[in-house]
Amino acid sequence: MTTPTATAATPSPGASSRAKAWALRAPLLPALIFMIVVTQLPFVATLVISLFDWNALYPDDRSFNGFGNFSTVLSDDALRSSVVTTAVLTASVVLISLVLGLAIALLLDRKFRGRGLVRTMMITPFLLVPVAAALMWKHVLYNPEYGLLNGMLVWLGDLLGFTPPQPDWISEMPLPAVAVSLIWQWTPFMTLILLAGLQSRPLEQYEAARLDGADNWQIFRHLTLPHLRRYLELGALLGSIYIVQNFDAVYTITRGGLDTANLPFAIYQEFYQAQEYGVASAAGVLVVIGSLIIAMFALRVVSSLFREEGSRA
């Protein structure tokens, strides 16, 4: 009678692949836990607060309100006005920044002496702290008494022999004043994205088009713009995500007055001035949901760009 020999148990291929996957993911777990604690838990807390009628001035009167705060946000005239202001500000800044960024990217794509220095200087506005940039525009450029804009008008008046106007830029055109400061800061970001797109275009098609007699406008319309479509979409989506949430420029330049209060500033007013924690949290949740929707489209554009670059490689 023979006895069976003991054989070592070998792990199944599925268990081996799972162990390998966990071995690769394990170093990322601390970062994932930190991200959840820092980002997701505060959002969950905000979502919970948005369901309560909660005014910090009357802490004993806190009560569950369901979706009543969301109805207040959508029906309140001031908050609805802030939504319109946010949409106008975002659309104008993104569109103008894209157009200017495209023009500058086309110029920087050409070879000339000092191109590296010019590119570095072009990035500088985007690297400034937003509050510092807004303060610069408010005091250095817009000030009606010693600002550079009115100083340039005086210089032109002396040069051409006329009495120039001295407008108070912020009080006479408040929303454009905020928009111009944001356009100045976000145009370099659009330039970088579009310049990267220009440098990835297939040059063989351009050489073939020139041999066929195409002029610069035809090449730009039929080759450059279609190639940059994904990059234009990416710039518009990323710019929209950040400008929708912009608070610094509005708060610093106009303090939300003169019909320039956007949704983030309205949330600040509800939370810190009116002490309406529930309404402010509901408005914040709506901003996050809108940003997530835009981010979803941005991620799709990014993934499509990676697929296109991978197919060319």
Rank of each mutant, 00 (worst) to 15 (best):
T46D: 05
T46L: 14
L47T: 12
V48K: 13
V48D: 14
V48I: 15
I49D: 13
S50D: 04
S50R: 01
L51Y: 01
D53V: 04
D53F: 05
W54I: 06
A56E: 14
L57A: 15
P59W: 07
R62K: 14
R62C: 05
R62Q: 11
S63T: 13
F64S: 09
N65R: 10
N65T: 01
N65V: 00
G66F: 09
G66W: 15
G68A: 12
G68C: 07
G68W: 06
G68Y: 05
N69P: 05
T72L: 03
T72H: 12
S75I: 08
D76G: 02
A78K: 07
A78T: 07
L79M: 15
R80I: 13
S81T: 14
S82D: 07
S82Y: 11
V84A: 12
V84G: 06
T86L: 09
V88L: 14
V88F: 13
V93K: 04
V93P: 02
V94W: 01
L95T: 15
I96P: 04
S97W: 02
L98A: 11
G101N: 03
A105G: 08
A105I: 07
L106F: 04
L106W: 05
L108N: 01
L108C: 06
L108K: 02
D109C: 02
R110K: 15
R110D: 09
K111A: 12
R113M: 01
G114C: 07
G114T: 12
G114R: 00
G116W: 00
L117Q: 11
L117Y: 13
T120K: 10
M121P: 01
M121S: 10
M122R: 02
F126N: 04
L127M: 14
L127S: 00
L128H: 04
L128F: 14
L128V: 08
P130T: 04
V131Y: 10
A133C: 14
A134H: 05
L135I: 09
M136I: 04
W137P: 00
V140E: 12
V140R: 05
V140Q: 09
L141D: 00
N143G: 08
N143R: 08
E145C: 00
Y146D: 09
G147D: 11
G147S: 07
G151F: 06
G151V: 01
M152C: 06
M152H: 02
L153Y: 05
V154K: 10
W155D: 13
L156H: 01
L156W: 03
L159Y: 08
G161S: 05
F162H: 07
F162V: 03
T163M: 01
P164S: 15
Q166H: 13
I170T: 07
E172Q: 12
P174E: 09
P174T: 09
P174C: 03
P176W: 12
P176V: 11
V178I: 15
A179W: 02
V180I: 15
S181E: 11
S181A: 15
S181D: 06
W184K: 02
W184P: 00
Q185N: 04
Q185T: 04
Q185C: 04
T187R: 02
T187G: 03
M190I: 08
M190L: 14
M190S: 08
T191H: 03
L192F: 10
I193N: 04
